[in-house]
């Protein structure tokens, strides 16, 4: 059931410390299929607190995004690990706003591209990322524990300098599928 609210009532905040962690964990546990241990959450929010955002409605945490960035085979790339909005708050642009905030930080920090995985059945997420300019670069066979395939989505930022061939080369060097990505052991 959708909640009645005005978009202006949603407050977006960057990850602010330990008190935000249980809020993020609860949301993800509630809405995503993959189980994550506390270490996974800590790994992200401690190393890249500036890439994680939370959305609040009247004091209640209704959405969150958790990301990282780093070198991946000669490319500096951002990675969106988790994006969750409470079911009753969906369809109002909260997820788009959350993920856009992270992407902007990544872009400013010099990322060349952003990647993530999404279940092939998750039409909502695929449409959202499609609107933001992500392409479905690969399909990953039975990627999730539940046996569902995933899409690897990618967003390439425009290159400011004309030396285009270099950027092409760097994105091509990726070889290992599951190198340092969110992959289940």
């Amino acid at each position: 059931m959708a909640v009645e609210f005005d978009e202006s009532e949603i407050e977006y905040v960057s990850y602010g410390g330990e008190h935000h962690l249980p809020l993020i964990m609860n949301l993800v546990d509630q809405e995503l299929s993959e189980p994550y241990s506390i270490f996974t959450y800590r790994y992200f929010v401690y190393l890249w607190p500036n890439l994680s955002f939370l959305a609040f409605h009247k004091g209640k945490c209704v959405g969150t995004v958790v990301c990282k960035m780093g070198d991946h085979r000669h490319t500096f790339r951002g990675y969106i690990a988790m994006l969750v909005v409470l079911n009753s708050y969906r369809g109002r642009g909260i997820a788009t706003e959350l993920v856009s905030r992270s992407i902007k930080v990544m872009m400013r920090s010099g990322c060349e591209e952003v990647t993530l995985e999404a279940e092939v059945t998750n039409k909502g997420a695929l449409a959202l990322y499609g609107r933001l300019g992500f392409i479905r670069a690969k399909r990953l066979f039975r990627y999730y524990l539940n046996g569902v395939d995933a899409f690897r989505l990618k967003l390439l930022f425009p290159r400011p300098e004309p030396n285009y061939s270099d950027s092409v080369r760097s994105t091509l060097d990726e070889g290992v599928e599951h190198g340092d990505e969110l992959n289940t052991p």
């Binding site: 856009s100 992407i103 872009m107 609107r131 933001l132 300019g133 992500f134 392409i135 670069a137 990618k154 967003l155 390439l156 930022f157 425009p158 950027s167 092409v168 080369r169 994105t171 091509l172």
Partner: peptide
Amino acid sequence: LCMGPFNSEQERFVQHFELLQK
């Protein structure tokens, strides 16, 4: 149309066909 806030159609083209282009 391929439009998004962060990139243009050209980036999508590059990503989809990078292996062919290479």
